[in-house]
Each structure stands twice: as structure tokens, then as C-alpha cells.
Write a protein that binds this DNA or RNA. Structure first.
Lengths: 153, 153
DNA sequence: GCATGATAGTTACATATGAAACTAATTCAG
DNA sequence: CTGAATTAGTTTCATATGTAACTATCATGC
């Protein structure tokens, strides 16, 4: 018996499902800080990285938030203009530019974090604590698997 | 005892995790069809929708693949140019333009689908059948929850 | 019928993104 | 030392995307 021709059921196709879910969540979260604080998604992510991991260079920020250095550079330019981020100088290597939140940046960061965490909580409410852990673990494994496949090619 | 100030651990923040996972998977899949077939992500999704659901108008395609009508219109324009999609006319409502894959489009579609499904299988390999079902169910519930939250606002 | 409003689709503009070229600073081989 | 190769970061250009305006067609109320 020959295999039936496989059909691509878009609504059950994992990459498609992940994409749609991530986009919906990202847009919802974006609504929380775009209008009141005037931040783009990348700007907010840079601030989140700097808020959590003290001084970071642009490249290090990029590694943390999985974003290429060009995108980081542009986001940082905007944040510098608005005085939300400060540059330092690295005496031992003047190519590197350590970045950190300014006082204003820290204030804004401190106001956004609770909103972001509250949104996450509301999302997670639909899952029990066990299910939540399960989802996190499974998505971790899918991520690791995707990385392996990508490198193996 | 007052609550400790909550910290945003980016690496454990659900929206961030979803975004990174979806992007990695999307890029990996993109590699499968961008170079050999010269399709953009949106073009491929339009083809996938048309390949599965007979004649669809641009708006219907958009609903299927969660993409606004402008993006669909542009993707379709490219696919029409390359002769991968055909337009029909709806006599009863001449605003509507039913779309379907051309013979060439069907051929290309039939070549890409197995690649996409094979990639999905490789991804899922890291999960047991039970875990796979579990992940799908949990992500469905997160999606439904995100939609509810977005509409409630 | 015919003005008003709604709907399908396209076009235009402004912004966002990615790839590659570029500048400046550092490292390292010889 | 000194010149080739690396690295950090920025700028440029070409492309992609979203919002809003626009055209064409249809539905509705009168």
C-alpha cells in the first residue's frame, strides 16, 4: 500500500503555529509599552538586557537578546538620544563601548517590568503550575533541537 | 514582609522565549525554500493556504494565514508575475478575486511540502509522541488565552 | 433608481529590517 | 616595529512591512 500523499495542514504545522503564537503575544506585549513609553520592540529588549545584566557592550546585548549588532546599534542610538542609556569608555579596548541604563532609563525600566510580568502571569493563568513547567521544558527542548538542526544543516 | 522587587529574567520570560524559538524555526524553514525556489515567507504561506484550500480570495487567504490583506496582495502580485498563481473572476461579485495555484504552482507546492513536513518531523523527534501532543495542546491554550486577553484589553 | 455606507483589493508613504560596505581600534605573525 | 587579519560598531542601500488613503464594486435605505 503506497503512502498517501502527505498534505500540509497549515493549522497543525508546528513552525506556522509557533510563528502565529509568538506574533500574537509579542504584539500584545508591545501594546503595553509602545504607547505610554514610546519604545520599539528592539529598544525595549535592549533596555531589558541592560536592566538585568549591568554593563554590556552592543555585541553582548545582541547575544543576550538574539539580535544582530546592526539592530542593536540602531536601537541604542535611539535610546541614547532620549537619554535612557549611557555610554562608557573601555580604556583597555577603545573599540568596545560599555552600555548601561541611565537614571531615567532605570526609572522607565522599573515601571515597565511589572507590566511585562503581569502580562506573562495572565497568559500563564490558563495553565496549571505543572503544565507551565511542562510547556517551558518542552519549548526548551524544541529550541535546542532547532539549534542542532540549524548547525548540522 | 514586603515583596522583593521582581526582576525580569529575559531568558525565562515567556514572550521572549516564544519569539526566539519561533524566529529560529522560521529561519530554518525559510532556508529550505528560499534559495531553491525563490519564495519569500509570505509567498510560501500564501501558496500553502491555496494548496490546501482550493479557491480563496485574498481576504480569505489572509484569514487563514493570519496576515493582513496588504501583505497578501503583495505576495500574490509576485506569485502572479511568476505564474505560480491564477486569478479567476467571480461573476456574482466582481470585487472578489478567487485565487488558486497554477499547474506550475502546484508542482512547486508538491515539491516543498515534503521538505517542510520532514523538517517538522526532525524538530518533533526530540519529543515523545505524548510530549508532542502535550506541547501542541498547551500551545493551543496559550494562543486562545492570548487572544482572549487581547480582545479584553 | 440613487445617494450613503460597506467591502475587496491596490497603491503610496513612512518606517523597519537585513546584508554588505565602511571606519576605527586591536591583535598577531614575521 | 609593521603590515595583514580580526573585531566593535556605524552607515548605506536595497527590501520588507504597516498604516492610511484610494479605486472599484456591491448592499442598503429612502
Amino acid at each position: 500500500m503506497p503512502n498517501a500523499l502527505q498534505a500540509l495542514e497549515l493549522e497543525n504545522f508546528l513552525p506556522y503555529r509557533l510563528s502565529v503564537l509568538a506574533q500574537l503575544v509579542s504584539e500584545s506585549l508591545h501594546d503595553l509599552y509602545t504607547q505610554p513609553f514610546g519604545l520599539s520592540v528592539t529598544q525595549w529588549r535592549v533596555m531589558a538586557a541592560l536592566g538585568r545584566f549591568a554593563p554590556l557592550t552592543a555585541s553582548e546585548v545582541g547575544q543576550r537578546i538574539v539580535m544582530d549588532k546592526v539592530a542593536v546599534s540602531r536601537a541604542v542610538a535611539g535610546l541614547l538620544e532620549r537619554g535612557l542609556v549611557e555610554r562608557a569608555t573601555d580604556r583597555s579596548d577603545r573599540r568596545r563601548v560599555p552600555l548601561r541604563l541611565s537614571a531615567r532609563g532605570r526609572t522607565m525600566h522599573a515601571r515597565i517590568v511589572p507590566l511585562a510580568l503581569a502580562y506573562q502571569e495572565k497568559l500563564y493563568e490558563t495553565l496549571s503550575p505543572v503544565e507551565r513547567l511542562s510547556f517551558d521544558a518542552l519549548s526548551d527542548r524544541l529550541f535546542a533541537r532547532a539549534q542542532t538542526l540549524r548547525n548540522a544543516d
